[in-house]
Amino acid sequence: MRLFQARSRISRHALPWVVACALSFASSLPASPLLDSDRPEYPPDTTELDSQARDCLRCHAMETLAYRDPETGEILDLAVDPRLLSHSVHGEMACTECHRRSYRRYPHPEQAGRETFSCVGCHEDDPEDATYQFLSIEEEYARSVHVAPGASEAEDFSCHSCHDPHVFRVSRVGKEIGQVVRDDNRVCMSCHRELTDPLDTTHAWLPKRDAHWASVRCLECHTPPSDRAERVSHQILPAEDSARDCVGCHSSDARLLNRLYHYRSQEDLARKGLIAKALFNEAYVVGMSRNPTLDALSLLVIGLTLLGLTAHGVGRYLTYRRRTNRQ
């Protein structure tokens, strides 16, 4: 549970700001498939927000709301984007369901300042826990490259580093797969900005790199194989342990296949219906039916059969000619 407890260094709330920075930074570079903006329309629809949240947002919706931490001297962003909050998975909750109740008063009492949050604390009794298995997420997370012993920034890392609770949305079936990829990759890219550098060579080995980045989540290669169809592991792998084997994904018994094919099939059906699914089946991925052994063996048998048939035919012709010559 310890690892899941994120101190309320309000800097966690800085993630949207960092994302915005990353996006504006990226706009000056050649477009990278890893970055794509998907901000909801303005004006924001806040009708789904809790009434208390609307009260808090009277101040916290201000994009420039921040304060300087008297202890560290760090500027801490206190802004919450109401558009992103209203679309997020926590959008219907009252702020004090997570934050201290004393925040309801303004000015906020000073002792309210430091808080601890525990994702598992709320989510372990969650009826959706059966689906997401927060306790196993916790175990996987403990082995992740971001927090494993020796990780340089483990101290500052928490669930909220990737899952901003004011922004986070769960990808549901029916969401366009490209959008799922863009949304998930944007989380990684909010820190790993070096990858947008056109001179970056970390992924130079990957054939059709941009095509991969546009249609595959970073997580698919940077997590260990998982049997779960509903989510990837939370154990993020270091570069040297990540998948580099093409056949690992581009073959039938591949780790990516079941999950991807299942999702795409469900999505196809949900969006287009049975007949269009039967005709266009967009779930089929190049290489998913390949099996090098079976392919080689079959082509060999077919080749030998052709050879045998040709020899048989030639034999028939030669014996036929010999017979007719004799007559």
Binding site: N258, M288, N291, S298
Partner: peptide
């Protein structure tokens, strides 16, 4: 074994 794989291999064979 993943069903999709069994299906793919049956179809291929």
């Amino acid at each position: 074994v993943g069903t999709v794989w069994i299906v793919a291999m049956t179809h291929l064979t």
